[in-house]
Design a protein around this nucleic acid. Structure first.
Length: 196
DNA sequence: GATATTTGACCCCT
DNA sequence: AGGGGTCAAATATC
């Protein structure tokens, strides 16, 4: 697999920024409207902005990943949010393997600065935790989440959240699969970004 | 009572 | 055999 070249990396950030732009527009339209909707939009904007910052700060452009206890993670393609277009990293295409093996995945690093939360900022989707594991070489356990709507809407999206060793305020979030569930704010933003 | 989280066990891959 | 990912029962919270 190829590393993300500068153009590709820049394009990803531009994509993220474009998404932020649309979300801001949505927020502007909804100002004075439903406060809950505005709050969600603001949270989304925050999350996407964090992702972009995280990509730049963590040097995703050259695919540098943190080395935990001397263990180098395999290079990930720097891909933006699952909300935007994804360039899937082909995993083993083994139909007998675990279901997640055939899903796309992309990693982002987000910060929980200021929030002091156990989990990073909300990314606009509701997640349900289904597992936690201590990872060899990592100081903090990895949490496993899947979409709350997995049952009702068959959404196969999952994510793994792990606190960075060197900075507890940072979280490495690995998204697997794509959301097939429909979140109202996401759907609205998507409609703006991708008009029918 | 419904839903979410925790946690140990199990499965599969390397 | 060891490690990572998922399942599912038990428990907690609303």
């Amino acid at each position: 697999m190829e590393s993300v070249d500068e153009n590709g990396g820049s394009r990803l950030v531009v994509t993220e920024l474009g998404y932020i732009k649309e979300l801001v527009r949505q927020l502007d339209v909804n100002l004075g409207g439903c406060p809950d909707h505005c709050k969600r939009l603001a949270a989304q904007i925050f999350a996407v902005a964090e992702r972009s910052i995280g990509m730049i700060r963590s040097g995703h452009f050259d695919c540098r990943k943190r080395s935990a206890a001397g263990l180098d993670s395999p290079p990930f393609s720097a891909t933006p949010s699952p909300l935007s277009d994804v360039s899937g990293v082909p995993f083993h295409a083994n139909n007998k393997k675990r279901k997640t093996m055939e899903k796309r995945k992309h990693q982002v690093r987000v910060s929980s600065e200021g929030a002091g939360a156990e989990i990073p900022v909300d990314d606009g989707h509701s997640w349900r935790k289904y597992g936690q594991k201590d990872i060899l070489g990592a100081k903090h356990p990895r949490g496993y989440y899947r979409c709350t709507h997995r049952k009702s809407q068959g959404c196969a999206a999952t994510k793994q959240v792990q606190r960075a060793d060197e900075d507890p305020a940072l979280f490495d979030v690995i998204y697997h699969g794509e959301h097939t569930c429909v979140h109202k704010t996401v759907a609205a933003a998507a409609a703006m970004v991708q008009p029918a």
